[in-house]
Amino acid sequence: MHSLLTRLRPAWLCHVPTCLLCRAPGGDLSICASCEAELPWLGGHCSICALPLVTHGLPCGDCLKRPPPFQRVEAPWRYAFPVDSLITRFKHQSHWPLGRLLGELLTRHLEHGFSEGLPRPAALLPVPLAAPRLRQRGFNQALMLARWLGDELDIPLRSDWLKRIEDGPPQQGLDAAARRRNLRRAFALAPGVDVRGQHLALVDDVLTTGTTAAALARLLVRAGAERVDVYCLARTPRPGEP
Rank of each mutant, 00 (worst) to 15 (best):
A75M: 04
C60H: 14
A188Q: 13
E116R: 14
L58D: 12
H109Y: 08
S47V: 02
R9Y: 08
I48V: 15
D62A: 14
L220W: 08
R23W: 07
A178E: 13
T18M: 11
I31M: 01
A122G: 15
G240F: 00
P169M: 11
R135V: 05
S85D: 07
E38P: 05
A201C: 11
A201E: 02
Q198F: 04
A75C: 07
R72P: 01
C35N: 03
G210A: 02
C232P: 02
G103A: 14
W148E: 11
P126V: 03
R133I: 09
P128M: 04
C63Y: 12
K163N: 06
L4Q: 10
D154T: 14
P40Y: 07
T107P: 00
A11Q: 10
P121G: 01
R23G: 04
P132N: 01
P68A: 14
R158L: 10
W161P: 00
A123G: 05
A11Y: 01
P237W: 11
L174Q: 05
S94T: 06
G26W: 08
I155M: 04
Q198W: 03
P121W: 06
S159G: 08
L20P: 10
L149P: 10
C32Y: 12
D84C: 09
L219Y: 05
L42M: 09
G113F: 01
E166C: 14
D84P: 08
P126S: 11
L86D: 02
S3I: 11
D160Q: 13
A142N: 09
L220T: 03
